[in-house]
Amino acid sequence: MVGVPAEHGLILAAILFALGLAGVLLRRNIVFILMALEIMLNAAGLAFVVAGARWAQPDGQIMFIFILTMAAAEVAVGLALVLQFYHRFKTLDADAASRMRG
Protein backbone atom coordinates (compact mmCIF):
# COMPACT_ATOMS: atom_id res chain seq x y z
CA MET A 1 0.00 0.00 0.00
CA VAL A 2 1.42 3.28 -1.03
CA GLY A 3 0.37 5.70 1.68
CA VAL A 4 0.92 9.33 2.28
CA PRO A 5 4.62 10.06 3.01
CA ALA A 6 5.34 10.71 6.67
CA GLU A 7 6.82 14.14 5.90
CA HIS A 8 3.56 15.38 4.49
CA GLY A 9 1.67 14.23 7.58
CA LEU A 10 4.18 15.92 9.88
CA ILE A 11 4.10 19.15 7.88
CA LEU A 12 0.32 19.14 8.12
CA ALA A 13 0.61 18.56 11.88
CA ALA A 14 3.06 21.44 12.18
CA ILE A 15 0.80 23.76 10.19
CA LEU A 16 -2.15 22.78 12.36
CA PHE A 17 -0.09 23.31 15.53
CA ALA A 18 1.07 26.73 14.37
CA LEU A 19 -2.48 27.72 13.49
CA GLY A 20 -3.66 26.61 16.93
CA LEU A 21 -0.85 28.48 18.67
CA ALA A 22 -1.58 31.62 16.66
CA GLY A 23 -5.21 31.28 17.70
CA VAL A 24 -4.28 30.98 21.37
CA LEU A 25 -2.00 33.98 21.21
CA LEU A 26 -4.03 36.28 18.99
CA ARG A 27 -7.71 35.65 19.75
CA ARG A 28 -9.15 37.52 22.68
CA ASN A 29 -12.35 35.58 22.91
CA ILE A 30 -11.86 32.88 25.48
CA VAL A 31 -14.07 30.35 23.65
CA PHE A 32 -11.91 30.69 20.56
CA ILE A 33 -8.79 30.25 22.67
CA LEU A 34 -10.26 27.00 23.92
CA MET A 35 -11.00 25.88 20.37
CA ALA A 36 -7.46 26.81 19.27
CA LEU A 37 -6.15 24.68 22.13
CA GLU A 38 -8.19 21.77 20.75
CA ILE A 39 -6.59 22.31 17.35
CA MET A 40 -3.13 22.16 18.94
CA LEU A 41 -4.02 18.95 20.74
CA ASN A 42 -5.26 17.42 17.51
CA ALA A 43 -2.11 18.52 15.73
CA ALA A 44 -0.07 16.69 18.33
CA GLY A 45 -2.38 13.66 17.95
CA LEU A 46 -1.92 13.71 14.19
CA ALA A 47 1.84 13.74 14.63
CA PHE A 48 1.59 10.64 16.84
CA VAL A 49 -0.61 8.82 14.33
CA VAL A 50 1.71 9.67 11.43
CA ALA A 51 4.70 8.48 13.43
CA GLY A 52 2.84 5.25 14.36
CA ALA A 53 2.05 4.64 10.68
CA ARG A 54 5.64 5.36 9.68
CA TRP A 55 7.06 2.65 11.97
CA ALA A 56 3.98 0.39 11.72
CA GLN A 57 3.51 0.41 15.47
CA PRO A 58 0.25 0.70 17.45
CA ASP A 59 1.81 3.08 20.00
CA GLY A 60 0.96 6.20 18.05
CA GLN A 61 -2.73 5.37 17.94
CA ILE A 62 -2.73 4.48 21.64
CA MET A 63 -1.26 7.86 22.41
CA PHE A 64 -3.94 9.50 20.23
CA ILE A 65 -6.65 7.81 22.27
CA PHE A 66 -5.01 9.17 25.42
CA ILE A 67 -4.93 12.65 23.96
CA LEU A 68 -8.59 12.36 22.93
CA THR A 69 -9.57 11.42 26.46
CA MET A 70 -7.51 14.18 27.96
CA ALA A 71 -8.98 16.69 25.50
CA ALA A 72 -12.52 15.65 26.46
CA ALA A 73 -11.73 16.20 30.14
CA GLU A 74 -10.02 19.49 29.39
CA VAL A 75 -12.97 20.76 27.42
CA ALA A 76 -15.34 19.84 30.23
CA VAL A 77 -13.29 21.79 32.79
CA GLY A 78 -12.55 24.58 30.34
CA LEU A 79 -16.19 25.17 29.40
CA ALA A 80 -17.16 25.21 33.07
CA LEU A 81 -14.50 27.88 33.66
CA VAL A 82 -15.75 29.85 30.65
CA LEU A 83 -19.26 29.84 32.13
CA GLN A 84 -17.89 31.10 35.46
CA PHE A 85 -15.78 33.67 33.64
CA TYR A 86 -18.77 35.05 31.75
CA HIS A 87 -20.87 35.04 34.86
CA ARG A 88 -18.30 37.15 36.64
CA PHE A 89 -17.01 39.58 34.03
CA LYS A 90 -20.03 39.77 31.67
CA THR A 91 -17.64 39.39 28.74
CA LEU A 92 -15.58 36.72 27.03
CA ASP A 93 -12.45 38.85 26.60
CA ALA A 94 -9.53 36.99 28.23
CA ASP A 95 -7.64 40.26 28.81
CA ALA A 96 -10.43 41.49 31.04
CA ALA A 97 -9.17 39.13 33.74
CA SER A 98 -5.77 40.73 34.12
CA ARG A 99 -6.09 42.17 37.60
CA MET A 100 -3.73 40.50 40.08
CA ARG A 101 -4.09 40.45 43.79
CA GLY A 102 -0.91 40.20 45.79
Binding site: V24, L25, A94, D95, A97, S98, M100
Partner: peptide
Protein backbone atom coordinates in the same frame (compact mmCIF):
# COMPACT_ATOMS: atom_id res chain seq x y z
CA UNK B 1 6.40 40.78 32.70
CA UNK B 2 4.00 39.93 35.49
CA UNK B 3 1.09 41.83 33.95
CA UNK B 4 -1.70 39.32 34.57
CA UNK B 5 -2.52 38.81 30.87
CA UNK B 6 -2.98 35.16 30.11
CA UNK B 7 -1.97 35.45 26.46
CA UNK B 8 1.35 37.04 27.34
CA UNK B 9 2.12 34.14 29.61
CA UNK B 10 1.21 31.69 26.84
CA UNK B 11 3.50 33.67 24.58
CA UNK B 12 6.27 33.38 27.14
CA UNK B 13 5.80 29.63 27.39
CA UNK B 14 5.90 29.07 23.66
Amino acid sequence: TQNGRLRWYAMGIS
